[in-house]
Structure formats: C-alpha cells, structure tokens
C-alpha cells in the first residue's frame, strides 16, 4: 500500500481529470495522512482544478491558430 511521493503526485494529477482508479485514490489518501508535502500539493492541485472550472476557460483549437498564423504571415 505504500507509495512514493512521485507516485502520489501522479495519482493526484490523474484524479484531477477523474482518471485515477479506486485503489489508486485509496493509496493516495493513505499517503496524504503521512505526508504533509503531498497533502499540501493535493489541496493546491484541487484548488487549481476548481479555479479552472469556475473561470470557464476558452481556447482556440490548434488548427484555428495555425490558420491565423498563416494569414498573419501573408501580411508581414
């Protein structure tokens, strides 16, 4: 059941995208009980996720950006 901090952070990142399995989350929770650094990391990471959700971010797709770049280059 014991995992390293590196594994813990990976599980934490995955769980931000709901891609961590049940046992992985159990392992992470156990690890957090013993490791203050990872507990802090998890807290901040979760906060980042909720900030991103709240902000309702938009992004242009890469193909749109490529098209924009090409158009701009013509004008340079």
């Amino acid at each position: 059941m014991k995992i390293s901090c590196e594994e813990a952070s990976t599980i934490c990142n995955k769980s931000q995208y709901k891609e961590a399995g049940f046992w992985e989350i159990m392992k992470l929770k156990l690890h957090i009980l013993m490791c203050k650094t990872c507990a802090k990391f998890t807290k901040q990471n979760t906060a980042l996720t909720s900030l991103c959700e709240r902000a309702g971010l938009n992004t242009l797709s890469e193909s749109d950006k490529e098209a924009m770049k090409k158009d701009l280059e013509k004008h340079l």
Binding site: N58, L60, M68, L72, L76
Partner: peptide
C-alpha cells in the same frame, strides 16, 4: 514581435 502573437496572445 508579431510572429509570436498567435502563440502568446490568441487565447
């Protein structure tokens, strides 16, 4: 630096 505009500021 117009050549970096899209990458840096588009979003």
């Amino acid at each position: 630096h117009p050549e970096t505009w899209v990458d840096q500021y588009a979003d």
